[in-house]
Write a protein that binds this DNA or RNA. Structure first.
Lengths: 94, 94
DNA sequence: AGATTTTGGTTTATTTTATAAACTACTTTA
DNA sequence: TAAAGTAGTTTATAAAATAAACCAAAATCT
């Protein structure tokens, strides 16, 4: 029987964001937006969801007077990501 | 930059169905329903979508007087699945 | 035999999600 | 100083997934 896929991670954009954060200490809003090729609104919404779930930490500060949003994956987020990937392997193995 | 994930395949249930069909000559409706642990309605709808996309062939016949729905993956479906898995690898690699 | 449940689905309705569009606030440039 | 750009947020809309209701026939129960 096929395992459940964490619905929070099984979304192209959220998975992309998590994937980027798995491979970086931290990442800025604009970096995530560019790498995922998504709109700002979509990134904003998905960051909120990941943050609410405790998968990432979002820090809002200022670079001079420009807003600067920095994101970081949490332990919980890493664990969820790894579990997701494990479950997914059932689906994509030949 | 992260690649697009075929939205038709990036759905837990449709991916599950395609995964099962990748590993079997053919599969019956009830088998797919059981293995994916989904409701009949949901399976029915998703089979239609995969079929419309030409990813699978759905054959409706009778076993005596009971309806019997048999599914099979197509060449196009196999190709789409393989491309999906390839794109996905960008997301899940460390 | 007649009522009830089960099987194998489909169709329709509802909820959830993803995404886009519109907007805010401030800054830089012409 | 007006226009355009940056860095986002909020709200609206479109698309999906899912569940609920339904149908027809067969099997089971009393």
């Amino acid at each position: 029987m096929l395992r459940e896929l964490d619905p929070l991670l099984h979304s192209q954009l959220r998975l992309g964001i998590m994937s980027l954060l798995m491979n970086a200490e931290s990442a800025e809003f604009t970096y995530l937006k560019e790498k995922t090729n998504a709109t700002a609104g979509n990134v904003s919404v998905q960051l909120d969801k990941l943050s609410e779930a405790g998968y990432i930490i979002v820090e809002k500060s200022f670079n001079g007077k420009k807003p600067l949003t920095t994101c970081r994956i949490t332990k919980k987020g890493i664990k969820a990501f790894e579990e997701y990937v494990n479950s997914l392997k059932d689906y994509i193995k030949k």
